[in-house]
């Protein structure tokens, strides 16, 4: 007789997702960490990576000044992209959640995620047409006298930045929208009722209550943007580099799996560190705010 204890029955429905996740995420993460300590073998060798003599040499190389610069550019591009996305997403989410009727809301949300129905690659390639120096957009700007020379953005870091913002804007809108929509409109009325003007109500009621959504949107956008390698590959040319692109190059083209793995591990660590710093900053800000406001009782 097989006896399933109530506890295991309770968690049983999680099994498919957890096993899937364990295999494809945890196992591959573990593999990457293991590979990062390996050594690249000559092309003639049977196995592309040797673990005979595990070393930190890959990490030494990953931390060389060239790569550090790319890490920095990556974090900067992702950081600026995240801030730009949040700043543009918030007003959209706010209007959607508070000013638009329920009926129009679903339609507008559909419009916002509509670009995702087109392949990511295709959409990014489309930006090459838009940004091309001899393209229609460039000529229109010149015709209007806004710029004097053909548009020189394509294949630079600027193009990567624009592509990143474009691609992750909807990702930023949705969590913020969900957070704002869950705020009872009566709370804003209650705030006005006891004497707070619109600005105070926004900063004391709406914004704090939307913070979980903002953090969610920020983390999601930042992680996706920092790991992106398609946008720099398509729009960045030789000058627009991000670490995701370099990792892909190391693993797929240079056949240097250990170095690519080490760089991936460093990227993960850098993302975690950024997250921790941002979280800490938030806690400090919150504490300062309470200190400044003074006790209520």
């Amino acid at each position: 007789m097989s006896q399933v204890s109530p506890l295991s029955r309770k968690w049983l429905p999680l099994l498919p997702a957890v096993s899937w996740w364990a295999f494809f995420f945890l196992a591959s993460l573990l593999a990457i960490i293991v590979y990062s300590f390996g050594v690249k073998t000559p092309l003639t060798a049977l196995n592309p990576v040797s673990f005979d003599d595990p070393s930190l040499s890959n990490y030494r190389e990953a931390f060389s000044s060239v790569y550090i610069r790319v890490f920095w550019i990556t974090l900067k591009t992702a950081g600026i992209g995240t801030i730009a996305c949040l700043m543009m997403a918030f007003p959209v989410a706010y209007v959607l959640a508070t000013r638009v009727s329920k009926h129009w809301r679903s339609w507008l949300l559909f419009v916002i995620i509509f670009p995702y129905w087109v392949s990511f690659l295709l959409r990014t390639f489309a930006w090459r047409i838009i940004l091309a120096p001899e393209g229609a957009f460039s000529e229109a700007l010149q015709g209007l006298g806004i710029i004097s020379a053909p548009l020189g953005i394509l294949d630079t870091q600027m193009a990567v930045q624009m592509g990143i913002i474009y691609n992750y804007l909807p990702v930023a809108i949705l969590p913020i929208f969900v957070a704002l929509e869950r705020i009872d409109p009566a709370l804003r009325q209650a705030s006005a009722d006891v004497g707070a003007n619109r600005v105070t109500t926004f900063f004391r009621i709406t914004l704090p209550l939307a913070t979980p959504g903002l953090i969610g949107a920020g983390v999601l956008t930042f992680i996706l943007a920092a790991g992106d390698y398609v946008v720099p590959a398509i729009l960045g040319g030789a000058r627009g580099l991000m670490i995701g692109r370099l990792i892909a190059l190391q693993i797929l083209e240079a056949q240097n799996l250990p170095l690519g793995a080490a760089m991936a591990v460093v990227l993960i660590a850098a993302l975690l560190a950024t997250g921790a710093i941002a979280g800490l900053a938030l806690i400090v800000l919150n504490w300062l705010n309470r200190k400044f406001q003074g006790a209520s009782i």
């Binding site: 709370l187 009325q189 209650a190 006005a192 707070a196």
Partner: peptide, 18 residues
Amino acid sequence: PSHKRPVNTVFQDYALFP
């Protein structure tokens, strides 16, 4: 505007700031 009126309200579902 409501924030300048000498009136205060107890809301139906209280609307306390969570």
